[in-house]
Design a protein around this nucleic acid. Structure first.
Ligand SMILES: [Zn+2]
Ligand SMILES: [Zn+2]
Ligand SMILES: [Zn+2]
Ligand SMILES: [Zn+2]
Lengths: 162, 162
DNA sequence: AGAAAAGATGTTACTTTGTATCGTTTATTC
DNA sequence: GAATAAACGATACAAAGTAACATCTTTTCT
C-alpha cells in the first residue's frame, strides 16, 4: 500500500513536504511542457500549506491577503489554476468536502483514496491494490465497467485517537 | 453482494420500484414514529421517478411544475424533506454529483457504494463485504479508525456497453 | 376539551461553490 | 516582427445549500 499517512498524521518537518511538492511539480511540468505559471505555483503552495484540504474560496482569501501578491485575486483565476493542477495530477478534489489537497505522489499513476480525520481534518492519500480489486470485482459482478472512482473515508486519525 | 444492479440497469416495471419504496418508507416511518408527511412523500416519490440521481433544484422544479401541488415549493422545504429522508436512510446523497437517489434497501443496515453510469446516468447501489474489508484493512494499516465512507464508482453500465 | 409544547411548513434573504464571457496581456510559432 | 495560442483580470452570473422568522399543525399534558 502506497500512502503518506505516516507523515500526514504525525509531527514532521512540513517544509520538506512543500519543497518536495513544488520541486516535483516543476519537474513534471517541465517534462510535459506544461506551464507552471506564478499563480499556478502560488495556488499549489497555498494548498500545500498543510495536510488539510482547502476550499477554493479559502485559497482565494489566503492569496489575496498574503504579502507577496500585490492585488486581489478573483475566483476564476484560482479555479483555472485548480483545473490546471487537477489536470496535471498535482492536486486532488475531495467531493465530500468541496475542497482540494496536494497529491504526495504525482506522476506515478495511482488509483487513490483518502482518509479524512474528522477531528483535525488532516487527510492522507492511499493507493491499495486490494481495495482496487475489491471494487473492480464487485462492479464486475454487476457487469459494470469501472472508469474512475471516488473513495473518501471519514474517521479518526492515529494522532486524534484517545 | 447486495445490489439492485440487475433491476436498475435493465428494462423493468419501474412502478413496482416506486410502490415498493413508498410502502417500505411508510412501514419504516410508522415503526419509528417518524412522520412521513405529504411533502416528504412527494419528495421521495420524485426522487424515485427513475434510477438516476436527482439534484435538489430539479426536485424543486419537478414538484413546483406538477399538477398535484397547488403552489410553488421553495428550496428550504425540499432540503428539509431531503434531510428527513437522509436521516431515515430512505435516500442517499451522491457527493460527486450533488444529487440524491432512493435507497433500494432501507432499514437493513448496509455500508453501501454506488455504480454511476456516465452514459445513461442510471445508478445502482451495492453493498459488499469484500470492499468493506479491503477499505477497513487498508485504513487499519494507517492506524486510521473508519467512521463512514463515500464510495462512488463512475463507469459504463451493462446496458450502455457496446 | 383547552392550553402548552413540539414539530413541520411557507417565505425571504443570504452564503458558498463554481462558471460564462469578454477584453487584455503574455508566451510561442512561423 | 506579425500571427497565433495560451493565460490572466475582471464583471457578472448560475447552482447548491442554509439562516431566520412567522405561521400552521400535531402531539402532549392537565
Ligand atoms: Zn507535511
Ligand atoms: Zn486527526
Ligand atoms: Zn426501477
Ligand atoms: Zn448506462
Amino acid at each position: 500500500m502506497l500512502t503518506n499517512s505516516r507523515i500526514a498524521y504525525h509531527r514532521h518537518d512540513h517544509k520538506r513536504c512543500i519543497n518536495a511538492a513544488l520541486c516535483r511539480a516543476k519537474e513534471l511540468c517541465d517534462a510535459r511542457k506544461a506551464r507552471l505559471t506564478p499563480i499556478r505555483e502560488t495556488v499549489l503552495k497555498t494548498i500545500w500549506a498543510s495536510h488539510r484540504p482547502l476550499g477554493a474560496y479559502e485559497i482565494v482569501d489566503q492569496i489575496s491577503q498574503s504579502e507577496t501578491s500585490a492585488h486581489r485575486v478573483f475566483p476564476p483565476t484560482v479555479y483555472r489554476a485548480i483545473q490546471f493542477l487537477l489536470d496535471q495530477g498535482l492536486i486532488h478534489r475531495l467531493s465530500s468536502l468541496n475542497a482540494y489537497i496536494g497529491c504526495p505522489f504525482p506522476g506515478n499513476y495511482h488509483s487513490d483514496f483518502f482518509l479524512i480525520c474528522e477531528q483535525c481534518g488532516s487527510t492522507a492519500e492511499c493507493s491499495d491494490d486490494q481495495v482496487d480489486h475489491a471494487v473492480i470485482h464487485a462492479a464486475g459482478r454487476a457487469n459494470f465497467q469501472v472508469e474512475s472512482k471516488v473513495i473518501e473515508i471519514v474517521g479518526i486519525c492515529p494522532e486524534c485517537q484517545v
